[in-house]
Computed example of a mutant assay.
Amino acid sequence: MASGERVAIARSTGSVGGLARLAAIAEQFGYAYADAGLGGIRGEQLMLVLVPDPRHEAQARAERNRALYPNAGDGVSLPPLVPQEVELLEARISFDFASQFTPKQRLAVGIPLATAVAVAPCIRFGLHSTAALVAGLLWAAFMLLAPLGLVSIRRKRAQYGARLRAAGFLPVTDARGRLRYIPAP
């Protein structure tokens, strides 16, 4: 980040809250949250993208914090975080995660994956009536749960969107056609 360029952070473990705290710290040093999603070779990593914030107030805050916290690189000597700002970043990151894939894309990945998991007992124990019954029941359960998962994601997106709109964020469509929320100018 010291170079002042775009930064993409990949984490194999962690949480949305942890990414939000990391983004909040970066904002104290002249960066702004840009995007989040799943990445890595198999999509198993949490990705956070930060970009330099060119606004005058962001650069002034960064200079002030660099002077007040010269050892910030140790991960301990950091400026205090404002809980409301972290919560808003968490809502933005969560919304972006929930918006990364369309419902059709989720089903296109989920149905074959659920089928493979359901067939696993037959592969492991051979194709006989008990294994086939277990496989059939697992597959049916997965297919019944799929619409519930899509509804849950839709509800979460609506909740995060309402929270962000109430905080003054503006809905925009990015170059990939995905709905995002950005701070008001």
Rank of each mutant, 00 (worst) to 15 (best):
M1H: 15
A2N: 09
A2H: 13
S3L: 15
E5S: 03
V7C: 12
V7K: 10
V7N: 02
I9L: 13
S12Q: 15
T13N: 13
V16M: 04
G18E: 05
L19S: 05
R21S: 01
L22C: 07
A23V: 06
A26R: 11
E27A: 00
F29H: 00
Y31T: 05
A32L: 04
A34N: 14
D35L: 13
A36F: 04
L38R: 10
L38W: 04
L38M: 08
L38S: 13
G39A: 13
G39M: 07
I41Q: 12
R42E: 09
R42H: 15
E44A: 14
Q45Y: 04
L46Q: 06
L46A: 09
L46K: 06
L48R: 06
V49A: 06
V49M: 03
P52Y: 08
D53E: 11
H56R: 12
A58P: 15
Q59V: 09
Q59K: 12
R61Y: 07
A62E: 09
A62R: 06
A62N: 05
E63W: 14
A67I: 07
Y69V: 14
N71K: 11
N71C: 12
N71G: 13
N71F: 12
A72F: 14
D74L: 11
V76K: 14
V76Q: 10
S77W: 08
L78Y: 08
P79K: 07
L81S: 02
P83Q: 02
Q84H: 15
V86D: 04
E87Q: 14
E87C: 00
L88S: 03
E90D: 13
A91R: 02
F95A: 10
D96V: 02
A98M: 06
S99R: 06
F101H: 13
T102W: 08
P103T: 02
K104H: 12
Q105M: 13
R106V: 11
A108E: 03
V109W: 12
G110Q: 00
P112T: 00
P112E: 03
L113G: 10
A114D: 09
P121T: 05
C122A: 09
I123Q: 05
G126C: 09
L127F: 00
S129G: 02
L133C: 03
V134C: 02
G136M: 00
W139S: 03
W139M: 11
A140V: 08
A140D: 01
F142Q: 00
M143R: 05
A146Y: 14
G149T: 04
G149N: 13
G149M: 11
V151E: 12
S152T: 15
S152F: 12
R154N: 07
R154S: 06
K156I: 12
K156A: 13
A158E: 15
Q159H: 07
Q159L: 15
G161I: 06
G161V: 08
G161Q: 07
G161D: 01
A162Y: 00
A162K: 08
R165D: 07
R165Q: 02
A167E: 00
A167Y: 01
G168A: 02
G168S: 07
G168V: 02
G168M: 05
F169M: 03
F169K: 06
L170C: 13
L170P: 00
L170N: 03
L170V: 14
V172C: 06
T173S: 10
T173R: 07
T173D: 01
D174C: 04
A175D: 15
L179V: 10
R180E: 05
P183R: 12
A184Q: 08
A184P: 06
P185T: 00
P185R: 04
P185K: 04
